[in-house]
Design a protein around this nucleic acid. Structure first.
Length: 262
DNA sequence: ATGCCTGGAAACTCCAGA
């Protein structure tokens, strides 16, 4: 049974409940993975999601910051939650579908302003988080798995609006790109979005700090869909819903989608 | 180099986002 999966950094699931409902109604993904819910799990507005058919949810939350949730029309059972780098943050939740496919939903630390762990503790935490991801995948190589989320790194030159200008900007520095590649390689993860859309600039995030984000188009591809090689060939129809970034009172991230024929 | 904007909370100012 094919299913469509979406990932979206929502930047407050409670404030943007109407946008989530509009997105679910308009696009009908089977599974929606959210990041930056900024809410304890018990305060996520589940009733409205349930009414649209999203009867299943696994989540981790905390007050004010971080928070990840998987809303699903398909039955899903919780399959663990990691606290990489021991930050005490709600940045990962895993679920398993009845067909055995595991879904990992990650919100990797942003990393602060300066790309130097000696003067910016947050950057060190981001690198530690990524090396813990790498070690976890290395010690238990995933199979039949999908990994999505806001990984807060735009790895390719055509994942940012200006590669040279962003080389020293957190999210596109070579040390981060290398750390992400090591985590990706450790799990044999295939970048589904780029397998589907290999050429051309591709962004999923545009800063709020632009008078006209659409015209300026200074975007970055921070949100990703990966899959293990045993199921990556089943993925198709990848897309990034740029229009959603233009909805009223939007998140600064756009949803990223893929369909899996499994 | 800085500000631009947005959300949450220990809220009328600050931290975090990236």
């Amino acid at each position: 049974m094919p299913f469509t999966l979406a990932t979206w950094n929502i930047n407050s699931v409670r404030l943007r409940e109407p946008l989530v409902l509009r997105f679910l109604s308009d696009y009908q993904p089977d599974i929606l993975c959210l990041q930056e819910c900024k809410s304890p799990v018990e305060k996520i507005p589940r009733e409205a999601f349930t009414a649209l058919g999203y009867r299943h949810m696994v989540a981790r939350g905390q007050k004010g910051y971080n928070g990840v949730a998987i809303l699903s029309k398909l039955p899903i059972k919780e399959a663990g939650a990691e606290d990489h780098a021991n930050l005490g943050h709600a940045r990962h939740i895993a679920g398993r579908l009845e067909n055995g496919v595991a879904i990992h939903n990650f919100y990797v630390p942003a990393g602060g302003d300066k790309p130097d762990r000696l003067i910016n503790e947050k950057f060190g935490q981001k690198l530690d988080y990524l090396s813990d991801m790498r070690d976890a995948f290395h010690s238990a190589v995933p199979q039949k798995s999908i990994l999505v989320g806001d990984l807060n790194i735009a790895p390719r030159e055509d994942d940012v609006w200006d590669h040279k200008k962003l080389l020293k900007i957190v999210s596109h520095t070579p040390i981060e790109v290398e750390a992400l590649a090591q985590a990706q390689d450790a799990g044999n993860w295939v970048d589904v979005t780029r397998a589907d859309i290999p050429d051309g600039n591709l962004y999923s995030w545009w800063s709020y700090r632009a008078s006209d984000w659409d015209a300026a188009d200074k975007g970055r591809r921070l949100d990703h869909v990966w899959a293990t090689p045993d199921i990556s060939n089943a993925a198709h129809s990848s897309r990034i819903l740029r229009d959603v970034r233009g909805w009223t009172q939007p998140s600064d991230h756009a949803p990223v989608l893929a369909t899996f024929d499994l």
